[in-house]
Design a protein around this nucleic acid. Structure first.
Lengths: 242, 242
DNA sequence: TCCCGGATAGTGGTCTGACCACTTGACCAC
DNA sequence: GTGGTCAAGTGGTCAGACCACTATCCGGGA
């Protein structure tokens, strides 16, 4: 059995997660006022600084608005929250949220080719070498989870080659959401992917033509996207009609 | 003169911004250890809870790693930070960072058409009506800043129509970065845009064909993107050779 | 009757000082 | 070397106090 680092959740972390849960679940709707810091501290049995830390982090995520002298109110996270909220929405309460995963998978398909096109314009020899090595590593294993880790590494390199800080941060945010769900998704994607498509994409990137790379990236992403979406659909309907 | 709300920066906000500046400017490189909380509190002349709040927010942004009992160390923000960091990178120290803006503008051009395609599949009559109204408002004003605000509102509606939580949060993050720079960018974009292109896009969305919408979105975004990129290039070179 | 003004209670903002829990590194015994 | 012990320094948490600000209510003046 693989040993894992013991998780030690701090008090403010715990408070943060609880309040965040109330907000994203809709138990506390936009405009509603939270209990006062003192009251929250009392109810949760923790000190006020602990509550403060949690609420300030909530404010930074634009989930609540705190006003000096006034009450702290809930904001509409769909309208104001940033992409960093995605992981919290994805795995709410232990299980994954199907519509959220669907949108992430769609976004991957829509954004990936664009990044590949940028990368084709700006890659250098070192990038190509690393990409080639990663494809080889991908082709060299049969473990689905391991293969998915290599695809993540591959796209990480593509983003590097694209040399865009915006896409880099975007990729980081999506990865942070993707990573925890990776074991679950790996089995679904399964045979949907092939090393061949990645080799074609790598060749296109080496070639340096943006449109070729864009098309190749689409051919890489399409099969696993379709596999995931159909799997999500059956998941959805099976839950709706038990 | 237009009155503005007085800005009341809290102590933890100030600390956060200072430490963040040190990190994103590279003054504190990845792996380096921050001074201890007590030391920071002493140096900055504030209390430890204030420092703590700031550092916890830094940790949430994945800019630093705090370890109980050990030192707090700087992480590589390019590798780990999420898209919510973008505004901080964009306007570092009062002036805007040209390469960062460039990447945002590129991303806009690469992502926009994809969102439009999604929106074409999922829009309903209410969306189309609102889009039409927004185009009319856009065409009805000559003030560049006002026009850009309508543009933002238009894309906000497109994202709504696309019905994707991922793109919604992504749009929120990009907007948060875009908004402060809007007055500056508005003058550059200037005549690059036309209500006509937006009308075509709206018609394509109403029609419901993804590929038509994608192409129309590209035609909407291309001119202003080109205008911005060339403006950024001259800005760049003029700064390099004074 | 209406409206304005100040009292007041309750909120978030900040500080102090203390103690606990953990990591690190040095030192020591085996 | 290996493992155990200990001290110093770090972050984690708490309690209580006071300040700054807002919302609300209520009484007096128009």
């Amino acid at each position: 059995m693989p040993l894992q680092p013991v998780s030690r959740r701090s008090v403010p972390d715990e408070v943060f997660d609880q309040v965040l849960g109330e907000v994203v679940s809709g138990a506390l709707g936009p405009g509603e006022a939270l209990p006062s810091e003192r009251r929250l501290a009392e109810v949760l049995g923790v000190s006020r600084p602990a509550v403060r830390e949690a609420l300030q982090r909530m404010a930074q995520t634009r989930l609540v608005e705190v006003r000096h002298g006034g009450a702290t109110t809930v904001r509409d996270f769909r309208r104001y929250a940033g992409l960093d909220l995605l992981p919290s929405l994805l795995v709410r309460g232990g299980s994954i949220d199907v519509p959220v995963v669907r949108s992430v998978v769609e976004a991957r398909l829509l954004i990936g080719p664009g990044v590949a096109a940028l990368a084709a314009e700006r890659r250098d020899a070192a990038h190509v070498a690393q990409l080639t090595a990663t494809v080889a590593a991908y082709a060299g294993t049969d473990d689905p989870v391991e293969r998915q880790r290599h695809t993540l590494a591959y796209w990480d390199l593509v983003v590097d080659a694209a040399d865009s800080i915006t896409f880099r941060l975007l990729f980081n945010s999506l990865s942070a959401a993707y990573e925890p769900a990776l074991p679950v998704l790996a089995s679904v994607i399964g045979a949907g992917e092939s090393a061949g498509a990645y080799r074609v994409l790598t060749a296109a990137l080496e070639e340096g033509d943006p449109e070729t790379a864009r098309a190749a990236a689409e051919r890489v992403l399409r099969p696993s996207t379709d596999a995931l979406l159909t799997a999500l659909n059956t998941l959805d309907t099976s839950r709706e009609s038990p």
